[in-house]
């Protein structure tokens, strides 16, 4: 796996919210509740999770009870703050309007499993703004192909520094290198 470190202007850090929204891979203990995974393993503050993370999706299904909903490998977990609009309200945790989702899409519960698994984490809106920079600085694992597409779609991005596996590199060479490996660990530094 490629280890990529990009140094950017702090003013442009928010452009990487697009990557956080598309999702990145994180290891997590299987069979644990979403609350446990997010607080004990990923390190989210319990109060932050309770108050700020108002909307949680597990594999595209809104989660109301994150104490009894557990994760398994391959799960996609998405975190959002409270959203506007009727539909935004409908998908909120414990929403009085939850019934409007319809009975056809039940909440996922008790997947079970043991050991360490890999899940995809997506961060949206204010949640990405609040905790995204920490993830970006410490490094996130994403598909190399996705990073390549992202860089091609943002030709306006200029980097103060690019390092691949510790070696300095010209940013123009990066897309080519990203063709070789399946995944990349990306760290974004701003100074």
């Amino acid at each position: 796996m490629l280890d990529i470190c990009l140094t950017v202007d702090p003013a442009r850090l928010s452009v990487f919210q697009e990557i956080l929204a598309a999702g990145f891979h994180v290891p997590a203990p299987a069979g644990k509740s979403i609350r446990k995974v997010l607080t004990a393993h990923i390190g989210l503050d319990a109060r932050y999770l309770e108050t700020r993370v108002q909307t949680i999706f597990l594999n595209g299904r809104a989660v109301d009870d994150f104490d009894h909903t557990t994760i398994k490998t391959g799960d996609v977990l998405a975190l959002s703050s409270a959203m506007p609009g009727l539909v935004g309200a409908v998908f909120r945790r414990q929403s009085p309007l939850a019934k409007m989702r319809g009975s056809a899409i039940p909440e996922t519960k008790a997947n079970g499993g043991q050991g360490s698994v890999e899940i995809t984490l997506k961060l949206f809106n204010q949640v990405a703004q609040d905790i995204g920079p920490d993830f970006l600085m410490s490094g996130i694992r994403i598909s190399a192909a996705y990073l390549r597409r992202f860089l091609v779609a943002h030709p306006e991005l200029s980097f103060k520094g690019v390092r691949v596996d510790g070696e300095k590199l010209d940013v123009r060479e990066l897309p080519e290198i990203l063709n070789v490996e399946a995944n990349a660990r990306v760290r974004i530094h701003s100074d």
Binding site: A21, T55, F57, G60, R61, A62, A78, S80, M83, P84, G85, V87, G88, F91, I105, K122, F124, N125, Q126, Q129
Partner: peptide
Amino acid sequence: AYGTNVLTNVVNEAG
């Protein structure tokens, strides 16, 4: 901060 378009990612995630 984001306008009404903040819903795009969330509604998309919900399928």
